[in-house]
């Protein structure tokens, strides 16, 4: 039928009892299908709610949305394939984050040229700036950080070395505990603590620089 003409409304009746459609109501008798269907249902219930958090993490890791999209799809496929290895009732979010992080390391990071080193000079410089001042964190936050644009914070976050970036995102944006982070990053809790400490120092120094460049008065935090 290539062309459609105007006909009667009754032809479009919605009660088609006599038409047999095998869509929703047919009961699956195959027990294998039932078990795989319950796997799919359980996976959707446990895993899909974390899609946005995983994508956000993937974008921050890859710093490229196309790569992040591929990484996210691969993570869910791997998660589904190995879902029988996941212990129901345990932390599905952390499990998926770990799959994503490992997939990223194995397949995506090798092309990225990023020196994964600590900017110690930046930390020391920043410490020197504010060491002698006695300022409260609420003051620093209200006077400087709260005036920063979301994009500036996002760029500063993205510019952190990968090991620090992942730790601070998982802790402060995803609200994970040190134990969860150590499982995802496969490192000791002490390393998580150390990375978080350094990550925040570097991030703070970058944010202060942004504020200064935009003309905010940072002299209280400088010598």
């Amino acid at each position: 039928m290539n062309t459609l003409s105007v006909l009667e409304i009754d032809k479009f009746a919605l009660t088609n009892e006599e038409i047999n459609l095998d869509t929703h109501s047919k009961v699956q008798s195959n027990t294998l299908m039932n078990s795989s269907q319950s796997k799919q249902a359980l996976f959707e219930q446990e895993a899909l709610p974390h899609m946005n958090a995983l994508y956000s993490f993937a974008v921050r890791l890859c710093r490229d949305r196309d790569d992040a999209s591929d990484l996210l799809q691969e993570t869910f496929l791997k998660g589904y394939r190995f879902f029988d290895k996941f212990e129901s009732g345990t932390n599905c979010k952390a499990w998926l984050f770990r799959i994503l992080k490992n997939t990223y390391i194995n397949q995506y990071r090798k092309d990225k040229k990023e020196p994964d080193t600590v900017e110690y000079d930046t930390i020391e410089e920043f410490y020197d700036l504010i060491r002698s001042e006695s300022s409260e964190s609420t003051d620093l936050q209200k006077r400087i950080f709260d005036n920063l644009l979301d994009d500036e914070i996002s760029i500063a976050l993205d510019s952190l070395p990968e090991s620090f970036r992942t730790a601070i995102i998982l802790c402060d944006l995803e609200g994970m505990t040190y134990e969860e982070i150590s499982e995802i990053l496969e490192c000791p809790i002490g390393t998580v603590r150390s990375r978080l400490h350094r990550a925040r120092n570097i991030l703070a120094s970058k944010l202060i620089k942004y504020a200064k460049n935009r003309g905010y008065d940072t002299h209280q935090y400088e010598q």
Binding site: M51, N52, A53, L54, Y55, S56, V59, S69, L72, F126, Y127, I130, R131, E133, S134, S135, E136, S137, T138, L140, Q141, F145, D146, L148, D150, I153, S154, L157, I168, D172, L173, H197, R200, N201, L203, A204, L207
Partner: peptide, 26 residues
């Protein structure tokens, strides 16, 4: 005390901007 200031303020700014910094899957 300086370390406390930096750590707390930096943590808080990320928590406060969480929604803006989150990126939803298309």
């Amino acid at each position: 005390r300086v370390a406390h200031t930096i750590q707390t303020a930096t943590k808080n700014i990320l928590i406060n901007r969480k929604d803006a910094l989150s990126i939803n899957a298309p």
